[in-house]
C-alpha cells in the first residue's frame, strides 16, 4: 500500500497564562489509500490533529513536527500560498455541522460552482455540469432543484452530503472528515457514511475519519488510532477494536450501554494518570 501522508512527531501547542498547553503531543502515523479512524473523547486532541495537518491552527497555537509529508513533500516547509493550493485541491476537510460551513446567502449551486472554478479554470457551463454530476454522486435525487436552493432549505443530512460533494469536486487525494455525522440522525448517518465509503473506494482516496463514536469507527474504518490526552494510546485494526488491549479503550467500550446486553450499572472509566504520561504509540506502517 502506498503512503499518501506521513506524520511524524506532531505537536500542537497553545501558550497561555498558565504555561504552554500541549493539545497534541508527539503523534506519528501514516495514511495510505485506506479509511483511518481517529477516536477519542473531547479534549483528546483528535480534531487538533486533523486541523494541524492542513495547518489550520490559528495563532497563538503552534504546530511542530519532524515532518508532515504529503507524498514525500513536507507540508510544514511550504509557503502559505503553496499551502492554499494543497487545501481543497489535494486534501479536503468536512466539518461537523454543515450549517456553519455553507454561506447562507448564496445558492448551493453557486457555492459548488465557485469551489470548482477556484481550482480549475473551467467555464460556467462545465462547472454546472460537474456540479450536477457531483450532487448525483452523493445520492441527491433532484440535483437541479438543490442547485437553486439556499442552505437553510436543506436538512442536516442533505447539507452534509452537499459539503462532501463540494469537497470532492477538485478530486483530492485525502479527505479529512471531522465528526461528519455527529449532528445527524442515525438513519441519515448511515446514508452519509455509505456515500463516503463508496467515494473513497472508487477514487482510491485516503480518508481520515475523526469521531468520538467507537462503534461507528469500528464499523466504518480499516484502522483506528485511539487518542487520549493528546497522545495515541493504541492502534488497532478496526474489526479487532472490540479486542482492544489498552485499559482506556476497554473502558470506553464497556461504558457504552448496549441493546443486546442489559446491565444494571454501566462500567465507569477509571483514568490512570500513567496513560497520559506514556509515550505515544506510533501509527506508522
Amino acid at each position: 500500500m502506498s503512503t499518501l501522508l506521513d506524520v511524524e512527531n506532531l505537536w500542537v501547542k497553545f501558550p497561555s497564562r498558565q504555561g504552554v498547553f500541549d493539545a497534541v503531543r508527539g503523534v506519528s502515523f501514516t495514511l495510505g489509500r485506506e479509511r483511518l479512524g481517529i477516536v477519542g473523547e473531547s479534549g483528546s486532541g483528535k480534531s487538533m490533529t486533523g486541523r494541524a495537518i492542513l495547518r489550520l491552527i490559528r495563532a497563538p497555537g503552534i504546530v511542530e513536527a519532524d515532518h508532515i509529508s504529503l507524498e514525500g513533500v513536507d507540508l510544514l516547509k511550504m509557503s502559505e500560498k503553496e499551502m492554499r493550493a494543497v487545501r481543497g485541491q489535494r486534501i479536503s476537510m468536512v466539518m461537523q455541522d454543515p450549517k456553519f460551513s455553507l454561506n447562507p446567502v448564496m445558492t448551493i449551486g453557486d457555492q459548488i460552482m465557485e469551489a470548482y472554478r477556484l481550482h480549475s479554470r473551467a467555464s460556467k457551463r462545465e462547472a454546472f455540469a460537474k456540479s450536477i454530476e457531483m450532487l448525483e454522486a452523493v445520492s441527491i435525487r433532484d440535483p437541479f432543484r438543490v442547485m437553486r436552493a439556499y442552505p437553510h432549505e436543506m436538512s442536516g443530512g442533505m447539507g452534509q452530503r452537499i459539503m462532501i460533494a463540494m469537497m470532492l469536486i477538485p478530486n483530492p487525494e485525502i479527505l479529512i472528515a471531522d465528526e461528519p455525522t455527529s449532528a445527524l440522525d442515525v438513519s441519515v448517518q448511515r446514508q452519509v457514511l455509505d456515500i463516503m465509503d463508496k467515494l473513497v473506494k472508487e477514487r482510491g482516496m485516503g480518508l481520515i475519519f475523526i469521531s468520538h463514536d467507537l462503534n461507528l469507527v469500528a464499523d466504518f474504518c480499516d484502522r483506528v488510532l485511539i487518542m487520549y490526552a493528546g497522545r495515541i494510546v493504541e492502534v488497532c485494526e478496526a474489526d479487532r477494536l472490540h479486542e482492544a488491549k489498552h485499559p482506556y479503550t476497554r473502558g470506553l467500550l464497556n461504558s457504552l450501554p448496549r441493546l443486546d446486553a442489559p446491565r444494571d450499572r454501566l462500567e465507569v472509566l477509571e483514568r490512570d494518570p500513567a496513560w497520559a504520561e506514556a509515550p505515544s504509540v506510533s501509527g506508522r506502517i
Binding site: 473523547e41 467507537l214 457504552l256 450501554p257 454501566l266
Partner: peptide, 14 residues
Amino acid sequence: LDVSVQAEVLNLLA
C-alpha cells in the same frame, strides 16, 4: 457528553 461521562451520569440517574 463523552461516553465515559455518559456512563457516570446514567449510573447517577439510576
